[in-house]
Amino acid sequence: MTNRNLLFGSIALVVVAAAFAAVFGVWWASASGESADVRKTREEVSTAGSAAVATLTSLDFTDVDATYQRFLDVSTGSVHDDYAKNQEDFKKRIRDAKVVTTAAVRETAVTDVNLQKKVATIMVVVDTTVKESDKAPTTKRLRIEAALDQTDNGWKVNALRQVPYSAAQQ
């Protein structure tokens, strides 16, 4: 009988220990990780933000109106207002430059997301290839920080700035 009681007692202790481990494991995982909403939003911000930065760093002097409309489509706030306000000047500068610039995003990092304020910040590494009429194409790597707002039409860029590389960072 004693061995039998010892066996049942051991099984009961294992069950109780497993239950505690499960409960505390769930608490620990939920406390240390992001919520599903934040993870989903970070993915949305990364996808939309990197596409918007690629759009805003690409231009084609042979199709200025479409290029310019894409700029307006991916921007909001002061960036959008600046493009809208200076439309003819921007278009003239694009035509006069006579270049085609294409951007390829290499890496994107979401550095901040605020679900309540519906804002986010990303850092994007983008290679821009510039083709001037009769010259060989040149490629330049840029590091760009973009602030985004969540609008009714998705995430859009409201601020953009180039972040310089330093010798220590390369």
Rank of each mutant, 00 (worst) to 15 (best):
L142G: 10
D89Q: 14
S75P: 14
K156E: 08
A97G: 15
T41G: 01
Y68D: 10
S50M: 01
Q87D: 11
L13V: 10
N158I: 05
S75E: 09
I94G: 12
V79W: 12
S10Y: 06
Y68E: 10
L13G: 13
Q170T: 12
A17I: 05
F61Y: 15
A18G: 13
A136G: 03
V15D: 00
G9P: 02
I122S: 02
T128R: 07
T101Q: 14
L160W: 13
D89M: 08
D65N: 15
V105W: 00
T76H: 05
A168E: 14
N5D: 10
V126R: 01
E132M: 03
V23P: 11
I122M: 03
A146V: 02
V16K: 05
P164E: 04
D82A: 08
R95H: 06
Y68N: 12
Q69S: 14
T76L: 01
F71L: 07
A17F: 08
N114H: 11
K85A: 11
D96N: 12
S166N: 09
A167E: 14
N86M: 03
F71S: 07
L56D: 03
K118V: 01
K117E: 11
T57K: 04
A66W: 01
T41W: 00
T67F: 06
Q150Y: 06
T57V: 02
L13Y: 05
S133R: 04
I122E: 04
